[in-house]
Design a protein around this nucleic acid. Sequence first.
DNA 1: CGACTGATGTCAGTTGCTGTCATCACAAGC
DNA 2: GCTTGTGATGACAGCAACTGACATCAGTCG
Lengths: 196, 196
Amino acid sequence: MIGGMGRWEPNARGRLEEAALELYGERGYEQTTVAEIARRAGLTERTFFRHFADKREVLFGGGTLLEERLTAAVAAAPASAGPLEAVAAALDAVGPLFQQRHERSRRRQAIILAHAELRERELIKLATLASALAGALRERGVGEPAASLAAEAGIAVFKIAFERWAGEPGEEADLRQVMREAFAELRAVTAGAPGP
Amino acid sequence: MIGGMGRWEPNARGRLEEAALELYGERGYEQTTVAEIARRAGLTERTFFRHFADKREVLFGGGTLLEERLTAAVAAAPASAGPLEAVAAALDAVGPLFQQRHERSRRRQAIILAHAELRERELIKLATLASALAGALRERGVGEPAASLAAEAGIAVFKIAFERWAGEPGEEADLRQVMREAFAELRAVTAGAPGP
DNA sequence: CGACTGATGTCAGTTGCTGTCATCACAAGC
DNA sequence: GCTTGTGATGACAGCAACTGACATCAGTCG
């Protein structure tokens, strides 16, 4: 239709993602209809739902790649590393994934923060990552509930660090550096006088 | 007042909550329609949406009470307590809220865990609690990102401890005790050195 | 060339959710 | 006792998200 080659332009999924990001940014998430996204991508509403389970999922496509890299990094951490150290190493390994696309990450994060529905989806994605991290830790011999706690704490660090990083303008901020500082802060906070 | 059989039976909201909990348990969340919930409660679909923003919210009514008690407990913690200690005291203070209704908590949690849509709502409620906790900590003079980290870590402890507690049969398990153990585990995990 | 496969289009239908107006019990004032 | 609110509810129309079923067409393989 548009180009002139085959019946189907390539990369339908990518076009849908791009169209959605644009429209969500221009008119807002709720004011954008799935039919409009599909139309801008040169497709139909039905096809949108063949590529994405629902209207939100179009913003959360790269989840599996992230999960794979995180768990792989946990598995690759030195045997001497403790649970939280392994998680920190995993987050460190994944930092460049976002650093490369700082601007797109910012656009996406701004849209997500503006709508409760999208924040819900973001949170369940993070919870899924935490669950995967906990599984990877258990593979290393970490018991429960230590594995889940280390994973959840690590994801909390990531969440807070990412929000700070994505909120900063410019390209200078280093996500990995922000995450390292957050980890240090977490250790300081939890080091308080416990005393059972 | 109550005796006077008027046009409207009292406690419409409560009847809707009860009907929803029953139907979600009997036929599953997705297989239950809002019209059915309303019909069992002796009301109409339109009235359901006057009491609850959406189909999920009917399971998450008591959120404000929980938030109030948590923030109040943080504010009431002794000045000598560190951030995480204040959060731990707050969770300790709300333990009885669930302990009293162990059976209902179990039913509810089983339904929520079975459906991704409901877990999403659960997670955003927890995130809201974390945000409120962080605010209460800032009121105590805790800076950022320490306040957010302590709050998120505390909520992670609550989440994991609650899952364990709600998964246990019988009435014997003590939620507060489970939470205290989880806090101890968190401190051990974040202490840095790999355990024995 | 012809069958097969996979991505897309078309259409109808269900359901969550909202706006709008009518209805009815109850209470307050005349 | 009658009138006049007031607030909760019912009745109805409508939009948009999502799904199932079937048709269509490009490229591939025999």
